[in-house]
Design a protein around this nucleic acid. Structure first.
Lengths: 196, 196
DNA sequence: CATAATCATGAACCAATATTCACATTAATG
DNA sequence: CATTAATGTGAATATTGGTTCATGATTATG
């Protein structure tokens, strides 16, 4: 077992700069951003990217995993608040809305959503998020506010189908419809103006 | 106003072959398929594609518009059946399912869905489909089976968010959830196994 | 069938991008 | 500080894919 020698100081520094730059660039321009752009943003040469990540796909994967991690952390926070007494329905809706809004203007999240079901969501972050979602949904069902047959996969489905390229109003409407599909019958939304 | 001189015989023939080939190739591989591939499939040289379509985007647009036309025709057929006495809810669901299944393995439909809200859906086919959807939804509301605030845009939203890259079971589940979101309260789905 | 207008051909051109590699720098070590 | 292993550099390479254009073929017309 070859001991991992620690990174040289400059190497560690550059690795950080690369991750930050890649994060910025992918958030702004999506995973198709050229390696050159990331290198320039990081203030290093392209070759350096390749010293740290054998291939572009590896770099992108690392960034997307980071995104997934942040979302998973939010899910955990929501689950914790529920455990501490907060309304499961409120937390579920707030978390879902947050995911939607992130996906709308963060192309990394968008790409991560599109990548669900691919190798990307097999990292530990994905599992962490899945567990938190499970807690939220179980609480919602116990509370009677979410449909009894709801599963974590439904949450992922939500994530994966956010209408990213549509205008805000459309996205809001989609959100209403999805949430109404997720609720138990008695709990339907009140924001529809003209219903009996 | 320059009179459109009719196409020369060989030109007309080639135009047909190109449209067919482009349709095939885009259905199979999506709009990113190389022009070379389309040319080869059509049995002509790339230059010929450019004689008929100034740019690749124009060719793709033509193919997607064709797809939209077929879907619009299906919507009209459904609307007509409703006018003739068929259940609006049944027709709405059947049409929606058809759209979903098409989008699943027809990359042209998928691309057309993604292109909603872009210049592509401003052709006459788009308007035709919109009108038919309007008739279907109005009937469903009159029947009391669709939520009173449903609009044609919601139908487009459905179209645009089909979870294309997910496995069949996931897509079916999504369909259930969406349809439950579209129905009026009293009409919720019965395919959920474990609800009281 | 002769002529001109139209059309088809496909090699060449160009731009974008991932990736490599010979060489230059820099940090760790004694 | 001398040595060397690790690291950084960025021009060069390879590939892909859209687009053009000089040339040759085909069709329409009188």
């Amino acid at each position: 077992m070859p001991q991992e020698r620690p990174l040289r100081a400059d190497a560690a520094r550059n690795r950080g700069k690369i991750m930050e730059a890649a994060n910025r660039q992918i958030i702004a321009h999506g995973p198709d951003v050229p390696m050159e752009a990331i290198a320039e943003d990081a203030g290093v040469a392209v070759g350096t990217l390749y010293r740290h990540f054998p291939t572009k796909a590896d770099l992108v994967r690392a960034v997307l995993d980071l995104c997934l991690g942040e979302i998973a952390a939010d899910a955990e926070a929501a689950a914790d608040r529920i455990a501490a007494g907060a309304s499961a329905l409120d937390e579920f809706i707030a978390f879902s809305r947050m995911v939607m809004e992130n996906a709308a203007d963060n192309k990394a999240v968008k790409a991560a959503a599109r990548a669900l079901g691919t190798p990307i969501d097999e990292g530990e972050h994905a599992q962490q998020g899945r567990d938190a979602m499970d807690r939220i949904i179980a609480a919602g069902k116990a509370e009677g506010s979410l449909r009894p047959d709801l599963t974590v996969d439904d949450g992922y489905l939500f994530f994966a189908t956010v209408p990213i390229d549509q205008p805000l109003a459309i996205r809001e409407r989609w959100f209403t419809l999805m949430m109404d599909g997720f609720r138990s019958e008695v709990e339907r939304s009140a924001d529809a103006p003209d219903r009996g």
